[in-house]
């Protein structure tokens, strides 16, 4: 168990087989490796991600509907020495709270966002989310999601990178590969600590309860079906020649809001 996890309230409240604790394991191990436990503020959103409110031995705050990002932005602006991590699900980040993600990426806010994408609204019983895969059956799409009627799934890291330009570190990992996800989270935290701008990591996650899958189908979903729609990897961060890309250079070149 990562050192930054609080052991008193384990076992945690997530369902059996949930991907959230795996994403939080990656975050916890990244915090341990960077030895920044005393400086990190952890903010969680509403939805299943709120069950993480007492997950860590970190100062934590819980907010509603994607507002974790502006709360963390406020904390970072008031106390720039802190390392602010906003944790949310795909419903909070891409649907009702998308405006905050967009604004934070555009303004190069110096925070890290970790978003768990399980392609469904899990806490409310499995309705269609912005990230629901084409053809996926949910409570509100009983015949499978039809992209003709409801559009394509939202791709967050690509969007954040497009909006913010070079100063944004965006990556997509998966809970099927916690080591890779941990490296992405570490890079994102370093990005923030070095003051290089907004960092965003999406973790492809699991929801066996609402997908109604057993363990084998759960792995098939998250390892095969989801990466086919959501490509894994990093979308920017350091410039190709190895120099650290800074938001100021983006502004100077007219690539940002400037």
């Amino acid at each position: 168990m990562p050192r930054s996890w609080a052991t008193e309230n384990k076992p945690h409240r997530f369902c059996p087989g949930c991907g959230h604790p795996l994403a939080l394991k990656a975050l916890g191990e990244a915090v341990d490796d960077l030895d920044i436990q005393g400086r990190v503020i952890f903010g969680c959103d509403i939805g299943c991600s709120l069950l993480a409110w007492d997950f860590f031995n970190l100062d934590s705050v819980q907010t509603h509907h994607g507002r974790t990002i502006p709360v963390m932005v406020g904390m970072k602006r008031a106390r720039p020495g802190l390392i602010c991590v906003a944790y949310m699900g795909d419903g909070g980040g891409y649907a009702i709270g998308a405006q905050h993600l967009v604004s934070a990426a555009l303004r190069h806010e110096q925070i890290t966002v970790l978003l768990a994408n399980n392609s469904i609204y899990a806490m409310t019983g499995g309705q269609m989310a912005p990230t629901t895969l084409p053809g996926q059956k949910t409570e509100t799409t009983p015949f499978g999601r039809d992209p003709e009627k409801t559009g394509r799934p939202t791709r967050g890291p690509e969007m954040a990178r497009l909006l913010g330009g070079e100063g944004v570190y965006a990556a997509r990992g998966t809970v099927a590969n916690v080591r890779q996800l941990k490296n992405y989270v570490k890079k994102a935290l370093r990005h923030q600590m070095e003051g290089r701008g907004f960092s965003f990591v999406e973790a492809l996650s699991t929801c066996p309860t609402n997908w109604r899958t057993g363990a084998a189908e759960t792995w098939e979903w998250v390892e095969k079906k989801m990466p086919a729609e959501f490509p894994l990897g990093e979308f920017g961060g350091d410039a190709p020649d190895g120099r650290a890309s800074r938001p100021e250079s983006v502004l100077r070149e007219g690539g940002g809001e400037g």
Partner: peptide
Amino acid sequence: ALCKGCGLCLEKCPVDTIGWTERTGF
């Protein structure tokens, strides 16, 4: 006291050595 019996470990094991026992979790 931590195991919820989700079975993710069984499916991920590359040598399929993990299986279910009669001992129960919490």
